[in-house]
Amino acid sequence: MIVFDHLTKRYGPLVAVDDLSFSVEPGKVTGFLGPNGAGKTTTLRMATALIRPDAGTVSFDGRPYAAIPQPGRHIGIALEPNAFHPGRTALNHLLMLAPYVGADKKRCEEVLGFVGLGDATGKRVGKFSLGMRGRLNLAAAILGDPEVLLLDEPVNGLDPEGIRWIRQFMRALAESGRTVLTSSHLLSEVQQTVDNVVIIAHGKLVHSGSLATLEAGNVPRTIVSTRQRDALISLAQFHHWRVSAGTEPHSFLIEGPSAGEIGAAAGASHIILDQLASQSSDLEAVFLHLTEGQGGMR
């Protein structure tokens, strides 16, 4: 169990992470989601003692990261997308980390083979594609065979084949009883992989729970167009629907009722609708809805 407890980090007047508390269940894949700049990376860096929080703590089974001897044997981390010396080979990059986790050369080669870099062990990282660097980062994370993995935007830069691979990789880790916390700015990127989600925006928690609880927050969104603006707004107010201006002239976004309910109500009130279009209300929409507002449901 990873417990994030009232974590706060300020940069001058900006509060990057604001009194953030949540926990990550063992043996599951948890998606750590939020738009770019929401504070995901700062949070993960505070968890791993790279950044000192202004307040709060993060603990792994009760211990802070810095108090775990040989942390790489318990917690595998892929935070830095590009922390490689370009002149060092992939194998040497792992060999340099190997003493810390007690791994030998054979283990390094094995791990490189596992992430699909078996043919590139002697290649300099400077010649690696972004996708290969991503795989090398994961190889470094699993070198010490840890029971917990923290991954920051692991899908970034991967090709479709790489994305499929990393999804299987994370599922396989969870199925073998390991805990995975993976961040992303897109829910759709991890939707098929994660069991639980933790969503933050502006450094604050907006949602934490299983994917199913997120689906429960799935509010229908409908675009309507009408020239009877005032009539539509009073109708929305009467029914307690959330209405906002749409992207086109005379168009409005209504949240809450289904398209059918809106059509029936508008007809009963003699409002002529030029357009009535249900928005594909997938989880991504829920995610956007949650992260756009200043922290709605908790």
Binding site: A49, L50, P71
Partner: peptide, 14 residues
């Protein structure tokens, strides 16, 4: 320069 210092501090937080 190459930010491997972060990797080093992750491997040995002390």
């Amino acid at each position: 320069r190459h930010n491997t210092i972060a990797v080093t501090f992750l491997a040995e937080p002390r």
